[in-house]
């Protein structure tokens, strides 16, 4: 499947939070995981990844710590803060509702009446 779509507005933050919820992770790993998770369907503009990370850190949803990786290099690991977890839950729930609603509408049969 070669066709890629852009991420809907605001979903990048949600995805980053979700990935960070699985455990502390550095920027490059997030980028990789995003691509894996979305099975190459979603084009993640890497250029906007880091500004998004910094923005989330700034809002106190992520916290950054400098740690050593398995390879012995220093990298900045992002983890979810408590505030971030709460944000993730509300955002995920609202995403859920939104997709359901859209799914419902798209699932309607043509013509409406029997």
């Amino acid at each position: 499947m070669n066709q890629k779509t852009d991420l809907p507005q605001g979903t990048l933050d949600l995805l980053i939070l979700k990935i960070a919820a699985l455990g502390p992770v550095h920027g490059y790993a997030i980028a990789q995981r995003l691509e894996q998770v979305s099975k190459y369907v979603v084009q993640v503009p890497q250029g906007s990844l880091y500004p998004a990370l910094h923005r989330l850190e700034n809002r106190g949803l992520l916290a950054g710590d400098w740690k050593e990786t398995e390879t012995g290099r220093e990298a900045k690991f992002y983890r979810l803060t408590r505030k971030g977890r709460a944000e993730l839950e509300t955002e995920a729930a609202s995403w859920e509702r939104l997709t359901q609603a859209i799914g419902l509408i798209l699932g309607l049969s043509d013509g409406g009446a029997e």
Partner: peptide, 9 residues
């Protein structure tokens, strides 16, 4: 740090 982070990437 910003430099280092991007370099790492």
């Amino acid at each position: 740090q910003l430099d280092k982070e991007l370099q790492f990437h």
